[in-house]
Amino acid sequence: MMTRSGPVGSSASLRTATRSSTTTRLRRLASSSRASASWNRHGHYQASLAEFPTLDLIPAAWLHLTVQGIGFVDEVTDVEFSRLTDLVQRRLGALTPPTVTFHRPVVRPEAVYLPADPPEPVRSLRDVVRHAVAEVLGDDRVDQPVRPPGEYRPHVSLAYSNAEQDAEPIAKALSEVHAEPVSLTLGHVDLLTFHRDRRMYEWTRAIPLPIGGGGSTRV
C-alpha cells in the first residue's frame, strides 16, 4: 500500500482512517482555517466522487485546512486556553496573511484532498501557532510531534475513505474533471473544539483569530 504524495492516482489503494468514539475525552482542540463558500468552487471534484460508496464526502460546512493540534479538552484548562488564545492572536497579528492556490486533488490512502500551493507560507503559519502552544502548555504537551521540513503537507480534504478501495477508478474520475485553480488569502485561523463521531471532523466551537489584523478567508 503506497502512501507517497503526488498527482492524482499516486496511491495504489485507499484504507479506512481511524475513527473517534463519542466520548468527552475525544473532543479535541485544534487550530484550523475554516472554509468559506469560495473554497468549494472545486465542488465538481466531489460530484465526481459521489458514485463511490467507499468515500465519505465532506460537506462544505466542514471543509478546513488543519494547522496544528492542541490537545484534548479535558487536558487544557480554561486559564491555559485563554492564555493560548491571547498569545496566538498576538503572534498572528504580526504576520502577513498567506495566499495559496488549490487545483488538482491528490489521492492518498485515507483521503482525497487538495494540496495548498505553495505550502511554505502555511508551514510558517503552523510554526508560529506551534511555538505558541509550546510556550503556554510546554514542549511535552504539544499535540503533534515535530516533523521534518516538508513532511507537513497543508491541504483541504474533500473525502475520507471508509473502506478498502482501489485508487485507480477514483483517480480516473477525478482526472476527467476540468476545473480552474482557486487562489485564496487565508485571513484567519480558528481555534476549534471538534469531534469525529460521524466519520468526519465537526466542530462545536470556533474562535476566529485574524492574521495580520485581517478578517475572513477571502479570494
Results as ranks from 00 to 15, higher is better:
Met2Val: 10
Thr3Ser: 11
Arg4Asn: 05
Gly6Tyr: 09
Val8Ser: 10
Ser10Gly: 11
Ser11Cys: 15
Ser11Met: 10
Ala12Lys: 09
Ala17His: 05
Ala17Glu: 12
Thr18Leu: 04
Arg19Val: 12
Ser21His: 11
Thr22Asp: 15
Arg25Phe: 12
Leu26Arg: 15
Leu29Ser: 09
Ser32Pro: 06
Arg34Gly: 10
Ala35Asp: 13
Ser36Thr: 15
Ala37Arg: 06
Arg41Glu: 02
Arg41Gln: 14
Ala50Pro: 01
Glu51Pro: 07
Thr54Phe: 07
Leu55Gln: 04
Leu55Ala: 09
Ile58Trp: 01
Ile58Ala: 00
Pro59Trp: 05
Ala61Pro: 05
Leu63Cys: 05
His64Phe: 03
Leu65Ala: 08
Val67Gln: 11
Val67Ser: 07
Gln68Leu: 04
Gly69Thr: 07
Glu80Thr: 03
Phe81Lys: 10
Leu84Thr: 08
Ala94Lys: 12
Thr101Ala: 02
Thr101Met: 01
Phe102Gln: 02
Phe102Cys: 04
Arg104Leu: 08
Arg104Tyr: 02
Pro105Tyr: 06
Val106Cys: 04
Arg108Pro: 00
Ala111Lys: 06
Ala116Ser: 11
Val122Asp: 01
Val122Ile: 13
Arg126Ser: 14
Asp127Val: 05
Asp127Gln: 13
Ala134Gly: 08
Leu137Arg: 09
Leu137Val: 06
Gly138Ala: 09
Arg141Pro: 02
Val142Asn: 08
Asp143Cys: 07
Gln144Ser: 13
Gln144Pro: 02
Val146Glu: 10
Pro148His: 03
Pro149Glu: 03
Pro149Asp: 10
Glu151His: 12
Arg153Lys: 14
Asp166Arg: 12
Asp166Trp: 11
Ala167Leu: 00
Ala167Lys: 06
Ala167Arg: 07
Ala167Val: 05
Glu168Asn: 08
Ala171Val: 07
Ala173Lys: 01
Glu176Arg: 15
His178Gln: 14
Pro181Cys: 03
Ser183Phe: 07
Gly187Asp: 13
Val189Asp: 05
Asp190Val: 03
Asp190Ala: 14
Thr193Ser: 15
Asp197Thr: 06
Arg205Pro: 00
Pro208Ala: 14
Pro208Asn: 12
Leu209Ile: 02
Gly214Cys: 13
